[in-house]
Structures are given as structure tokens and as C-alpha cells.
Computed example of a mutant assay.
Amino acid sequence: MTEHLRVDRIACRAHGLCADLLPELVELDEWGYPLLATDVVPAHLRAEASAAVAACPALALRLDRTG
């Protein structure tokens, strides 16, 4: 199963928690909005990705599972 990290750019309020919790996949642009290095979440980062999704105060992150 493959997990993909998605950002709802309309809902995002640039709190930056996703980058704090998942710096391997998320960095912030100059305004504090997330930029994804890749949307595919490696198996060893699934727990961290789930934590970032759960911590997002704007509910702007989600994990989609395929396969």
C-alpha cells in the first residue's frame, strides 16, 4: 500500500506544524505555507506523517492510501 500526503492549500493557515513534525517531506515557503518534497510517504515515515496530519489545526493535511 502506498500513502500520499496531500495539502489542502485553501484550508491551510500556515501554522507550520507539518514542517516541524515531518521535516523530511515538508518545508515551508517564504510565507510559511508547506511545500512537499514528494507526496509519496516512505514506509519508515508513516507514523510521523500520521502525527502531522493529526496535529494540523486547520485540518489541511491528509493521507491518501492507494494500492
Rank of each mutant, 00 (worst) to 15 (best):
T2W: 10
E3S: 15
E3A: 13
E3D: 10
H4F: 10
L5G: 05
L5F: 04
R6S: 08
R6D: 08
R6W: 04
D8S: 09
I10S: 15
I10E: 15
I10P: 01
R13L: 11
A14T: 03
H15M: 09
G16Q: 07
L17A: 08
L17N: 10
C18R: 12
C18E: 03
D20W: 11
D20G: 13
D20V: 14
L21Q: 14
L22P: 02
L22A: 13
P23T: 05
E24R: 13
E24Q: 15
L25H: 10
V26T: 09
V26G: 01
V26N: 09
E27F: 02
L28V: 04
E30K: 14
W31M: 14
G32K: 08
G32Q: 09
P34Y: 05
L35Y: 08
A37D: 13
T38F: 06
T38D: 15
D39G: 11
V40D: 13
V40I: 14
V41T: 04
V41M: 06
V41H: 07
P42N: 11
H44Y: 12
H44M: 09
H44Q: 14
R46W: 01
E48W: 08
S50F: 00
A51R: 15
A51S: 14
A51G: 05
A51P: 01
A52K: 09
A54T: 03
A55W: 00
A55N: 03
A55C: 00
C56Y: 00
L59V: 13
L61F: 01
R62C: 07
L63G: 03
L63C: 03
L63R: 10
D64H: 09
R65V: 10
R65Q: 06
T66Y: 05
G67F: 02
G67Q: 10
